[in-house]
Design a protein around this nucleic acid. Structure first.
Length: 435
RNA sequence: GGAAGGGUGGCUGAGUGGUUGAAGGCACCUGACUCGAAAUCAGACGUAGUCGCAAGGCUACCGUGGGUUCAAAUCCCACCCCUUCCGCCA
């Protein structure tokens, strides 16, 4: 969430930055300021009363000590009314604060100054590209056809088990999925210096709020309950990304400056309701309710936030380079960025069978937006507590990587060549044609 | 799920209604002593909100949320978590 002090001090600037997102959130700033003003006024009043009560209470204590009970009783009567007043005002103040914070939680992060102002995906500049679109001596098949002919995914039975948008990987497909997870974890831990963690796949509300998923995007999450006990519904949620648990690992902690940067790497399945999204329910692996992902999380000193984001992107790019895939990196414009992000790069991999680029990674610096929500701080050398920058990036999402991989490396005979770095994990050089 | 015990500042550990935001010890920091270090001595040492140009003041916080009271770390209620034992179970 935004720093209320900045909202207070530079409301026009905040409104302007928010307006560049085109989400309309800037309209709520006035109400937030109003609530904040009222809260501070009430607070000053009630604290004065409390100070008064504390003073008198001490006097009463002293009188009791001297056994001057009559005097003590008189003061008690006097103070009782103050107590009632405090009770009323306290309630008023905390309600106002609640309203202010509830509203503040629905305000997205401010875009970084380097982000291009734009309205939609069409305004996103391409930052760089790697490799070229693969050339084929034949018409490359789309992944659905490849998956069927090579028996990599059983779409029909996946849907039978869980409905559309769920995949049943089979045979070499299941192995490829597992190999990719292993490959990605090894790459990031051994070559990029991330610490591997394996988090819970169900998280509490606080985690979702901490990363900015809630309250705004509750509809996109799967809420679970215990058996048929409706009272337990919504205590836990299936993770939409490992970011939800992993970024929250140090929630409500005060880290030492020397601990930074912290770099975590985690595999998790990702569950997304995709309510209202186009493309769910159609066949294929591009948009599904459950997919695997290896996520990268960094907690860093704000001074290094910008540089760490660049580094994060290149860590993710390395995956595609090693797998021999053509991709491009784009910078999301203000209108296309995610809720919590100040700056986001997307990596889009070329899928020749689709004839399009697929987003396989989204790398963001959320700056102190999430750390403020989750009360994660670090203590500087000089003893000051500050909010660190929290960055997240997919390293990478799997279903689409799977698509790009098989579409790019398909052979004239219908088999798929495995890129060398993946071969030890597959224990094979190619996925053979089914006889 | 059942039983018992327990949750106090970075750690340890006192504290069962009244100058206790919290003794003592350890760690950390500053200073003195020392060529330097250790030891010793002295001091400082939680988080947040709010007011103030500042110095500083005030308020809140002893697992969480309620309650009793002039006053709660301390009493009452509910919940959460941890430990041990039992049961069930991958």
């Amino acid at each position: 969430m935004l720093d209320i002090r900045i909202v207070r001090e530079k409301p026009d600037w905040v409104r302007a930055r928010l307006a560049s997102r085109g989400s309309g959130a800037e309209a709520d700033i006035d109400r937030i300021l109003l609530l904040d003003e009222a809260r501070r006024k009430g607070l000053a009043e009630v604290e004065l009363l409390k100070a008064q009560r504390n003073r008198v209470s001490k006097e009463i204590g002293a009188l009791m000590g001297r056994k001057q009970f009559a005097e003590a009783e008189a003061l008690k009567v006097e103070t009782r009314q103050i107590g009632d007043q405090i009770g009323r005002l306290d309630k008023e103040v905390s309600e106002g604060e609640q309203q202010r914070d509830d509203l503040l939680l629905t305000i997205p992060n401010l875009p970084h100054e380097s982000v291009v102002v734009g309205r939609s995906a069409e305004d996103n500049p391409v930052v760089r590209t790697f490799g070229v679109k693969a050339e084929f001596s034949f018409t490359p098949k789309p992944h659905v056809a490849l998956c069927e002919s090579l028996k990599l995914v059983d779409f029909a039975r996946g849907a039978k088990l869980s409905g559309s948008g769920f995949l049943l990987y089979t045979h070499w497909g299941a192995r490829l999925e597992r190999a990719l997870i292993q490959f990605l974890l090894d790459l990031h831990t051994q070559e990029h210096g991330y610490i591997e963690v394996s988090p819970p796949f169900l998280v509490q509300r606080e985690c979702m709020t901490g990363v900015g998923q809630f309250p705004k995007f509750v509809d996109q999450a799967y809420a679970v309950q215990e058996g048929t006990d409706g009272s337990t519904l919504g205590k836990l949620f299936l993770v939409p990304t490992a970011e939800a648990p992993v970024a929250n690992i140090h929630r409500e902690e005060i880290l030492k400056e020397s601990q930074l940067p912290i770099k975590y790497c985690a595999y998790s399945p990702c569950f997304r309701a995709e309510a209202g999204a186009a493309g769910v329910g159609t066949r294929g692996m591009i948009r599904v309710h459950q997919f695997d992902k290896v996520e990268l999380i960094k907690i860093v000193d704000p001074a290094h936030g910008d540089a760490e984001l660049e580094c994060l992107v290149s860590d993710a790019e390395r995956v595609l380079q090693l797998l021999g895939l053509h991709y491009r990196v784009i910078l999301l414009c203000t209108g296309d960025m995610g809720f919590a992000s100040a700056k986001t790069y997307d990596i889009e991999v070329w899928a020749p069978g689709q004839g399009s680029y697929l987003e396989v990674s989204s790398c963001s610096n959320c700056e102190d937006y999430q750390s403020r929500r989750m009360q994660l701080r670090f203590k500087t050398e000089s003893g000051e507590n500050r909010f660190p920058h929290i960055l997240n990036g997919s390293g990478t999402a799997l279903a689409r990587l799977f698509v790009a991989l098989i579409e790019t490396h398909q052979q004239p005979d219908g088999s798929v060549l495995i890129p060398p770095p993946l071969r030890p994990y597959m224990r094979a050089e190619s996925i053979p044609v089914v006889q």
